[in-house]
């Protein structure tokens, strides 16, 4: 089993990337499970064609210890198993605690045991201990950071690298690379390559900005399903293949904020 986690700044395209990678792996015949670790429950929307309403935490709340695997594991595109951790409404409770409980429940139920790939799609930054659980507790070993060339996206990516570096010392977790999700910033690919190098990793893929992604998304589908012959689908398939075969994992070396600013300035001047 290959256990992968996607991290990155909020709104950068983690869920879209994860869902397309899951879809690409599944259409090749691999058994795949995608676990959304975000109280918004929208990680698996493109795979399920709807927003998942039966999240782990909702079901645990309703059924307690009686909750069954089939209540929380849903089948999506090409048989991808879809799980949403769930969590509180905005402004109440503790979403981080929710992630801990949801992942513990999945483990206790042995709900995900036979899949060849498990993808964790984790909310935004490593904001608290709860969102570090996929890294910390050995759930995921290969971490990918989705980032554009925008300063704040790189800043979040650098913070996530700090989290990975912290936990790498006591487990198998490593950074698999940076996935560039283009925002059409000037010299974006080169900037991301240099950023990745400074983090002791590499830019594993650069996903160009394409209207197709938006079209697929508003139709509640992955690009793989919506436009399987499109170039963008090819980009995601290539990414899936790289992720699948990647053995070049590293312990990241985060940079300081000033260095990051200089880097963005260096590549950003038009």
């Amino acid at each position: 089993m290959k256990k992968i986690a996607f991290y990155g700044k909020g709104g950068i395209g983690k869920s879209t990337t994860a869902a397309n990678v899951s879809a690409a792996l599944a259409e090749t015949g691999y058994s795949v499970c995608q676990i959304g670790c975000d109280p918004k429950n929208d990680s698996t929307r493109l795979l399920l064609g709807r927003t998942c309403t039966q999240t782990v935490l909702d079901m645990v709340r309703a059924y307690g210890d009686e909750v069954k695997t089939e209540q929380i594991v849903h089948s999506g595109f090409a048989g991808v198993k879809c799980v949403e951790a769930g969590g509180p409404e905005p402004g109440v409770g503790c979403a981080g605690r929710g992630i801990i409980v949801a992942l513990e429940k999945l483990k206790a139920l042995q709900a995900i045991t036979e899949e060849q790939f498990v993808l964790y799609d984790v909310l935004g930054d490593v904001v608290c201990g709860g969102f570090a659980v996929p890294i910390r507790e050995g759930y995921a070993t290969d971490i990918y950071i989705v980032s554009s060339g925008e300063l704040m996206s790189l800043y979040a990516a650098n913070n996530i690298a700090k989290g990975v570096a912290r936990f790498a010392g006591r487990g198998r977790v490593r950074l698999g690379g940076i996935i560039g999700n283009s925002r059409n910033i000037v010299n974006e690919r080169e900037l991301l390559q240099e950023f990745a190098a400074r983090l002791n990793t590499r830019l594993i893929a650069f996903i160009p900005r394409d209207r197709m992604v938006h079209q697929a998304e508003i139709n509640r589908k992955t690009v793989i399903e919506w436009a399987p012959q499109s170039e963008q689908a090819g980009v995601y398939r290539e990414l899936a293949s790289l992720v699948m075969e990647n053995v070049d994992l590293s312990v990241p070396t985060p940079v300081g904020f000033e260095e990051l600013e200089e880097l963005v300035l260096q590549y950003g001047v038009e």
């Binding site: 509180p88 109440v92 409770g93 503790c94 605690r97 409980v101």
Partner: peptide, 10 residues
């Protein structure tokens, strides 16, 4: 209880 620590205890 546990669920309130996640969803809030209001």
């Amino acid at each position: 209880q546990e669920e309130h620590s996640i969803f809030g205890g209001a």
